[in-house]
């Protein structure tokens, strides 16, 4: 279990992470979602003990994580800066990682280098943005760390590289189950990988739920305005659109089969809401007023 208790990260007068409490059972893949500036990287940095929280504590399997060598050995944190020496060749970066990580799998790292077509003789500074990200993924996955944190590690990757990334992440997780936290803005692409989803909004946890529960959570209702109005009643409307006499609304509600068949008889059509759609509706600031 990873526990965050009252974790706050403050930069001067800016509160990046605001009194966050979370209990994260180990061995799952978590998706951390949030808009730009919502505090994802600050939270992950604190979780990886790269940064001491301004206040609050983080416990990994019951022990305080910060400056704890036992916990740090078992934690891999990959962020956009990569935290490697820019003038080093890729091969040297990997050797260093292997020296640092007890769980390092050299053969797997070589396989990933091939997959992402990373030239091992090149220096880090000569890699493209996408190649740097791929190197980060190699460092993150081949470490086989019980706590693996990947912060937007797809930046600059093309569609093929991202597909390879998701495929390898899942395959290696299936073979070596561990706790993986993945922050991403490409929600539709990655959502199927998540067991749980954490949504951050302005430094606070807006939601922490099973991904499966979120998938069935929102619904779009489309039909003649009057019929839609009657169906909506006093339910909370997350968003709406109109086209002539047709109205489409997004509701944060789970419909029973009888509600749905009743609606269909009244000429309404129902559609599912993806996790990305739900995220957009829940975190767009125009929603603030009605929440």
């Amino acid at each position: 279990m990873i526990e965050l208790r009252g974790v706050t990260v403050r930069y001067g007068s800016t509160v990046a992470v605001d009194n966050v409490d979370l209990e994260l059972p180990t061995g799952k893949i978590y998706g951390l979602l949030g808009r730009n500036g919502s505090g994802k990287t600050s939270l992950l940095s604190a979780l990886a003990s790269y940064r001491r929280p301004t206040s609050g504590t983080i416990l990994v399997d019951g022990v305080e994580a910060f400056e704890n060598p036992q916990v740090m050995h078992r934690t891999a944190f990959v962020r956009d800066t990569l935290d490697v020496n820019d003038s080093d060749r890729v091969s040297r970066v990997l050797r260093f990682a292997g020296w640092l990580r007890s769980g390092w799998d050299e053969a797997y790292a070589e396989k990933l280098l091939d997959l992402f077509q990373l030239p091992s003789r090149k220096t880090v500074s000569s890699l493209s943005r996408g190649q740097k990200s791929a190197l980060g993924v190699v460092l993150g996955l081949a470490a086989r760390a019980p706590l693996t944190i990947l912060d937007e590690s797809y930046l600059g990757m093309d569609a093929v590289a991202r597909t390879n990334f998701y495929r390898e992440l899942l395959a290696d997780y299936l073979a070596y189950p561990r706790t993986i936290l993945l922050s991403t803005h490409l929600i539709d692409e990655a959502a199927d990988l998540f067991e749980r989803v954490i949504i951050l909004d302005r430094g606070r946890v807006l939601m922490h739920e099973e991904a499966e529960a979120l998938r069935g959570r929102g619904v779009t209702v489309t039909g003649p305005s009057a019929a839609v109005d009657a169906f909506v009643g006093d339910r909370l409307v997350l968003g709406e659109q109109r086209l002539g006499g047709v109205r489409a609304v997004t509701l944060d509600t789970r419909l029973s089969p009888s509600e749905q068949s009743g609606g269909e008889a009244a000429g309404l059509t129902f559609g599912p809401l993806s996790i990305q759609d739900l995220f957009v509706h829940l975190t767009s600031s125009s929603q603030e007023a009605s929440r």
């Binding site: 893949i29 495929r167 899942l170 299936l174 199927d192 990988l193 067991e195 099973e210 991904a211 499966e212």
Partner: peptide, 16 residues
């Protein structure tokens, strides 16, 4: 796990 790898989904989803 075989289903998870085939459909590229979290194994917990397949388990459900």
């Amino acid at each position: 796990n075989q289903y998870a790898a085939f459909y590229q989904i979290n194994p917990a989803t397949a388990a459900k």
